[in-house]
Every structure is written in C-alpha cells, then in structure tokens.
C-alpha cells in the first residue's frame, strides 16, 4: 500500500524566452509516494488542463535516467534531494505530506529559459560541434579490437563517456560553469587512440566555444561532481586543463616555413 500526500508546489512559470517569469503556487493533491517526480507533475498538469489552464511546461523524454532532459532544480538541488539520479528517477517518497517544494529551471545565461521549466541547452550542442567528434575513413568497418586499448584506459574513457549532457553540473555550480561537461567530452576522446588526430585542436576549440557561450569559470567547489547523475569525476576537469594548457603552451603546431 502506498501512502498518499498533499503538497504545495512553488513553480517557476514563464510564458516564453522574452517574458519575465515568476513563481506560482500550485497544489498537488493525492500524490502516491510510489510516483516519480515527473508523474507527480503529470497529475498536476492533468488537473490544470481540466481547469482550462496552461499546463506546466517541462522537458522529459526517456524517463529512465539516460536522456538527460528532465532539468529541474528542486528545493535548491539539481534533480532534487538525492545524489546520482535524474529527476525522473526521483520518487515522491523522498518528500513528506504537507511539504512545500520549490521547482525552478536550470539557471545560467547560456541556458535561457524557453518556457516555464524548460531551458535551451543548444549551447552544449555547439560546444560538442566545435570539437567533440573524430574523423573516420569511410568504407568497410574495421574488425573489432583492431586497435589495442588497455582495459583501464577503455574503462576510464567509458566513465567519461557516460555523461548524458543534462547540464546539472552547470545548474549546481555557483559560477554556472560547464567545465565538468566539456571536460568529460574532451576526456572521452583524449584517452582513446581514435581521438588522437584532433586531440589538441579539440581541447582548444571546445574550451573556446564554452567561453563564447558565456559559461562561468570553475572554482573547484566540486558541486558539479556531487550533483552529476552519472558520477562524472573532477579528474576530468584536471585532464581538460592539462589538454588545453598543454595544447596552448607546447603542442600548437604551425608549419615551420
């Protein structure tokens, strides 16, 4: 038997990217504690729709913790009060009857609010497009394991590659810095042989794009690592710094004419 609860939501409502938003208080009644946080919002939206009001707009897609869409800051924490999960993996049993829950969008200049709780994260896409790729030859696929990679390197690269680009690192950071995201993307390629061709250009291009998007500077508080639903480590940022500074100071190749 699941318990039911009544909650007070203070939700950020904003008509569009041009308008000024504000907090609106909404009641969420008869919420089962087995529901996920997003299911709770679905119930609230059903009620709002029935009453002819505009439902609360929020991003979501897979609802199994791998797409990185559900970008909600809940009571001052990205993805809510638990560690290592996305909002869709957060259940209402983490809250209690009568609680007031403040729900806000990611806050960053580089993540403008589109409507209510949904933000525009295409700045991440542009960073990725600036250098987060490898060039490969067309034609028949190589045999598997043609390129030898030590297991610990493969594992480390895989750890970095688990980043889902949700932006919780930016949301959690007091400086709205994107360095955990960018460093995970740089690391994943820097570690593997397939990423070597563009290695040093990549670090420079992605960091330049990150700066151009208006993200803040990392001050190593570690908030990003603590809030990352995928457990991306701060060591990635140290690696990015090495890659970038190494590229700038020692590896920027020009043809000696």
């Amino acid at each position: 038997m699941s318990a039911h609860m009544n909650l007070t939501l203070k939700v950020w409502r904003q008509k569009n990217d041009k308008s000024k938003g504000q907090f609106v208080t909404v009641q969420a009644n008869d919420i089962a504690d087995d529901m996920s946080f997003l299911e709770m919002l679905d119930i609230v939206n059903d009620e709002l729709t029935r009453k002819g009001e505009d439902p609360i707009y929020f991003d979501h897609d897979c609802r199994e913790g791998i797409c990185g869409m559900c970008s909600l800051v809940i009571n001052g924490r990205p993805h809510g009060p638990k560690y290592g999960i996305t909002t869709c993996q957060l259940h209402m049993r983490s809250f209690h009857d009568g609680q007031t829950i403040v729900i806000e969008p990611w806050r960053a200049a580089a993540f403008p609010v589109l409507k209510d709780l949904a933000v525009d994260r295409t700045s991440f896409d542009r960073i990725q497009q600036a250098g987060g790729y490898t060039n490969v030859n067309t034609g028949g696929a190589q045999d598997a394991n043609n390129i030898l990679i030590p297991k610990r390197i493969a594992d480390e690269a895989f750890e970095s590659a688990t980043c889902i680009g949700c932006g919780a690192c930016v949301a959690a950071c007091k400086n709205a810095s994107a360095m955990l995201f960018v460093s995970a993307k740089i690391s994943q390629f820097a570690l593997l042989p397939q990423g070597q061709t563009e290695r040093y250009e990549r670090a420079q291009a992605m960091v330049d794009q990150m700066d151009a998007e208006g993200f803040g500077n990392c001050t190593n508080t570690g908030a990003c690592e603590a809030e990352c639903p995928k457990g991306i480590k701060l060591t990635n940022i140290a690696r990015m710094n090495r890659e970038y500074l190494g590229a700038k100071l020692f590896r920027e190749e020009d043809i000696h004419g």
Binding site: A108, A109, N175, T219
Partner: peptide, 27 residues
C-alpha cells in the same frame, strides 16, 4: 573572474542548497 561568473547566472535560484554539494569555504 568573479564578475564573469556573476554574469554567467543573471537570475539566481530562489532556493539554493549549496552546502549539500560543496564546502562553505570553496564557495
């Protein structure tokens, strides 16, 4: 750097639980 960081978040959070994920002195 601080000015740039302030500009990176023009609208702050109404509710912000910094101590849940970082140490006071680092912030």
């Amino acid at each position: 750097i601080s000015l740039k960081n302030k500009a990176a978040r023009p609208i702050g959070y109404a509710s912000y639980d910094g101590s849940a994920n970082s140490k006071w002195n680092s912030r």
